[in-house]
Nucleic acid binder design. Structure first.
Lengths: 123, 123, 123, 123
DNA sequence: GTGGTCTAGACCACT
DNA sequence: GTGGTCTAGACCACG
């Protein structure tokens, strides 16, 4: 894992986003046990408190279950995961579309632009 | 104009982004005169100092020309504008593509997803 | 039995409260024999050590008598039970009254509120 | 203000509850400015970080608005406050009713008990 | 001067 | 050994 962290945005937010994406993209098993906060913090070269804050936020979202002294596990609610992934994808898409519109790209121009830019990858 | 401002990010940054998009998208004439900082600040319900800082940054980027006592005008360098617009569009696109990949969408799935979500608008 | 356990408070405390309420409310006969710690633990999906700790605390309170190899029984001291029940009820009531006062409910408003909310049940 | 804090439960939780009750009971003006986190922390004899955590949770509930460097203010959404107050009162009442039922008090007995205990105040 | 963030280090209850 | 909490102290961006 890279754990590339920018100091322009709160580290705990970046940790959240990074872990959330890994979970939503299916890299972890449902119900799989998480490393301890201390281990994760060491791995990410971050203070345990910072990692702790990220984990607590992920708990509130329901992605991670806290079993007190037994450590944390990934949620087993697969429909929750799928919904969140789809929801996040939609928000990402519409955010992208809105930004391009603000730059003056109509839907047709957006399509053309993506074709010319991603031709190599999408075709 | 909405001037929707979030208090999660620096105000002056949001002002810059907002004005920059309006310029790049072609809503202003080349060389057109800008409202005064005070008027803009009033319109955006923002401290004049904050708007001032935004304008100075836009000057550094070359989008806005400061004519001293004659007020500020939009640059007349159309190629600069076009380059910046294209550059920003590219960055936006690749950022979007990267985010979708992190959510586990391959190029093909991305294409399918956009078709199903934007069918109404793009067709 | 539900055995609903929150992981925000110590498990053994919740077990104590749960069992204590069952005893005080009169669901058990005086002197009745208790299930074994292991059976109770299994039933509550809890580590036997945790249930053990709860039982020991209940013994200290005098609610449960430990007869060594003969297992545990409910106390036969009916006045003890009645006193504890009344005492707990009083504390519960005054705690409730205090909380409502902190929300700005005077005694009159509290009475009105209870009437309107519990009309169906109390009338 | 007393700021009586028990060390049996998280301090930041107690701070939240304390402040929330003060707001819901109407002790503050709508839109009123809050003391700074540092001042509140000093007043409550608590570390600023602990008070900070409490304030952030109250923000998430919508009770407090954060204006960045301009400090925090009470929300001006009076209907939100009224709804939260009523909701909290209801939950408090039903929690009380449930606890009394677990002690074996039927609705009639609950009524009698309250009459005998609160006679002085309620009559 | 405000809130936000982070680190370092410590103690605690719990299983 | 786990997560939770708290303190102390520091730095930063912002307005």
């Amino acid at each position: 894992m890279p754990w590339k962290l920018s100091n322009e945005r709160p580290i705990y937010i970046q940790l959240e986003e990074f872990i959330e994406k890994r979970i939503l993209s299916g890299e972890y098993q449902l119900g799989e046990r998480f490393p301890s906060v201390r281990d994760l913090a060491t791995e990410a070269s971050v203070n345990p408190n910072t990692m702790q804050k990220a984990m607590q936020d992920l708990e509130k979202k329901g992605l991670i279950i806290n079993n007190r002294t037994l450590g944390r596990t990934i949620t087993e609610d697969s429909s929750l995961l799928e919904n969140m992934r789809l929801e996040l994808a939609k928000r990402t898409l519409f955010h992208f579309k809105k930004e391009m519109e603000e730059l003056g790209y109509s839907s047709e121009e957006l399509l053309q632009f993506m074709n010319s830019e991603l031709k190599l990858t999408l075709d």
